[in-house]
Computed example of a mutant assay.
Amino acid sequence: MMFVQFTMLTLLLENQIPFIVLEGIFECTISKFDQTAILIDVIHAVLEHVNPFKENKLKRTFSSNTTRHHHHNHHILSLLHQCYEYQDAKSSEFSNSRFPSAVELDRAGVSFKRARDTEWPLVMEVKLRRFPYFSFSWGKPTLIMPELDINDFTELVLRNLIAYEQFSANVTQYITSYAMAMDMLIDTQEDIAKLVESKVLVNHIG
């Protein structure tokens, strides 16, 4: 229970402190009892525990050296955000026109499938089944989406990542874009049920 409370506190935007301060605290506490412990490994274990996209393991996009050289810009929330960055991401704008909900897309013949082994954990793309030996597509389209694990941490993690994106300069708004896309897809409980049925949403809150 204490670990859960500690994890939730470390992810709040208002609780973020520079990495150099975390290193000082770590050296005065955990390092004294376990000299083999490494701060980055401890942080990564915590972040993996609260990662709402369980199907995709968090990539180690940071190391002790990178955080040490940029300690004024790094904290736990920024390190988590780095795990969702995509090198080849392209900027886009959402249309002001209404986007169909999950149920409406299903009625139109679109199926939903959770993404597996993707380079980017937040990938959303439409795929058409191609007919063998021919160049044309066949069958109904499939919307590939990340599997979102709904647990005690999910709302807190997403809300604070969005807040971090909104109040940080030169930070790509990956999580904000994902949240907007999900908001378009979900209008009713039926939309949620459809995504749960498709295993795009996984509920672990009872």
Rank of each mutant, 00 (worst) to 15 (best):
Met2Pro: 07
Phe3Cys: 12
Phe3Tyr: 15
Thr7Gly: 13
Asn15Pro: 11
Gln16Arg: 00
Ile17Tyr: 06
Pro18Lys: 02
Ile20His: 14
Gln35Lys: 15
Thr36Ala: 09
Ile38Leu: 14
Leu39Phe: 02
Leu39Met: 14
His49Ser: 12
Phe53Asn: 02
Lys57His: 03
Arg60Asp: 07
Arg60Leu: 13
Thr61Tyr: 03
Phe62Gly: 04
Phe62Asn: 06
Arg68Phe: 10
His71Asp: 12
His71Cys: 15
His75Leu: 06
Leu77Arg: 06
Leu79Glu: 00
Tyr86His: 07
Tyr86Ala: 08
Lys90Ile: 11
Phe94Ile: 06
Arg98Gly: 05
Phe99Trp: 00
Glu104Cys: 07
Leu105Gly: 09
Asp106Thr: 08
Ser111Met: 09
Ser111Trp: 12
Arg116Thr: 08
Asp117Trp: 11
Thr118Ser: 12
Glu119Tyr: 03
Trp120Arg: 00
Pro121Phe: 01
Val123Ala: 11
Lys127Val: 06
Arg130Tyr: 12
Tyr133Met: 14
Pro141Val: 13
Met145Tyr: 03
Pro146Ser: 06
Glu147Arg: 14
Phe153Glu: 04
Glu155Gly: 03
Leu161Gln: 04
Tyr164His: 01
Ala169Trp: 02
Asn170Lys: 15
Thr172Lys: 08
Tyr178Gln: 04
Leu185Gln: 00
Asp187Cys: 05
Glu190Asp: 15
Val202Trp: 00
